[in-house]
C-alpha cells in the first residue's frame, strides 16, 4: 500500500506545478495547455465519442499485426535455428531488416496496398516479425543441449522435443524478443498513422496529426498521454505476468 502513496504525491505535485506555471503565464497557452485544459479535452472527446473509435482502430491494427508477427516469427525462428540453409539466407535478411525502422516500409506499403488497412498491418508486421524471429532463433541456440538429450532418453522425439523442450527452454529469450517486437510494432504504427491517412478509420496517430493541424495542443498532449497509458498497460497486463513467471521459475529475480 505504502508504495503507492509517494509516487501519487509526486505526480500530483508535478501536475500542480505545471498548472501553476501555465497560470503564471510562463508560456503561451496555445503552446502549453494546462493539465485542466487537457482534462477538459478528455471530457469532450469522450462525450463526442471521438477517442474510443480511434483507440479501437489503433489497437485493432496493433494487436492483429502483432499476432501475425508472432505467429510467423516464432516458427520462422525455430526453423532458422534448425536449418543451416535458412540461417544463411533468411537469417541474414532478418538481421538486416531488423535494423530498418519499420516506418521505412510505409512508401512501399502505400504503393503496394494503397491507403488501406492492409498497408498498416504490413507496417506493424514488419515491425514485430524480425525481432520475434531473431529472438526465438537466439533463444533456441542458447538452450543447453543436455535438456534435449535428457528428453530424448525419456522418449521425446522430433516435434515433441521442439515444442516441449527447446521452445520452453528458450522462453526467457523469446519473451524479451516478443517485448521488443511489441515496442517496435507500436512505434512504427504511431509513425505510420501520423504519416498516412487511411479513409477507413483514423487511429490515435491521425488524431495527433489533426491536433497539430488545428493547433489544439490540449488534444496533442491528451493523445500522447493515451499512447503512453496504452504502452504501460500492455507492459503490465501482457508481459509482466509472463516475466514474473519466468523469474520465479528460472530464479533470476532478486
Amino acid at each position: 500500500m505504502k508504495r503507492w502513496i509517494l509516487p501519487t504525491l509526486c505526480f500530483l505535485a508535478f501536475l500542480a506545478l505545471w498548472e501553476w506555471l501555465v497560470r503564471a503565464g510562463t508560456w503561451s497557452r496555445v503552446l502549453v495547455p494546462s493539465p485542466l485544459d487537457v482534462g477538459a479535452y478528455f471530457v469532450t472527446a469522450f462525450r463526442e465519442g471521438t477517442l474510443w473509435p480511434a483507440i479501437y482502430v489503433t489497437m485493432k491494427r496493433l494487436v492483429l499485426g502483432y499476432a501475425v508477427g508472432l505467429a510467423a516469427g516464432l516458427p520462422l525462428g525455430l526453423l532458422n535455428a534448425r536449418f543451416k540453409v535458412l540461417e544463411d539466407t533468411l537469417g541474414v535478411v532478418a538481421l538486416g531488416l531488423q535494423t530498418l525502422p519499420s516506418v521505412c516500409w510505409a512508401p512501399l506499403a502505400l504503393l503496394w496496398f494503397g491507403q488501406t488497412e492492409t498497408a498498416m498491418f504490413f507496417i506493424v508486421i514488419m515491425g514485430s516479425l524480425w525481432s520475434v524471429m531473431l529472438a526465438t532463433d537466439n533463444g533456441v541456440r542458447n538452450v543447453p543441449p543436455i535438456y534435449a538429450r535428457a528428453a530424448r532418453t525419456m522418449g521425446s522425439r522430433g516435434l515433441h522435443t521442439w515444442l516441449r523442450v527447446i521452445l520452453p527452454g528458450s522462453l526467457p529469450f523469446v519473451v524479451s524478443g516478443m517485448k521488443q517486437g511489441w515496442a517496435f510494432a507500436w512505434r512504427s504504427l504511431m509513425a505510420a498513422e501520423i504519416f498516412i491517412a487511411i479513409p477507413t478509420g483514423s487511429g490515435l496517430g491521425t488524431l495527433l496529426h489533426y491536433g497539430r493541424e488545428l493547433n489544439a495542443m490540449d488534444q496533442v498532449i491528451g493523445i500522447m498521454l493515451v499512447i503512453v497509458i496504452i504502452g504501460l498497460l500492455a507492459d503490465k497486463i501482457l508481459f509482466s505476468p509472463v516475466e514474473r513467471f519466468l523469474h520465479r521459475r528460472w530464479g533470476t529475480s532478486k
Binding site: 543436455i146 535438456y147 538429450r149 535428457a150 530424448r152 532418453t153 525419456m154 522418449g155 523442450v165 520452453p168 527452454g169 522462453l171 521459475r249 528460472w250 530464479g251
Partner: peptide
C-alpha cells in the same frame, strides 16, 4: 538411438528449469 528402456541419469542433473 535413445530408448525409454535405457534411462540415463546425467552427471549434471539436467532437470528442466521451466517445470
Amino acid at each position: 538411438g535413445p530408448g525409454r528402456e535405457r534411462m540415463m541419469m546425467f552427471q549434471e542433473s539436467a532437470l528442466f528449469p521451466w517445470l
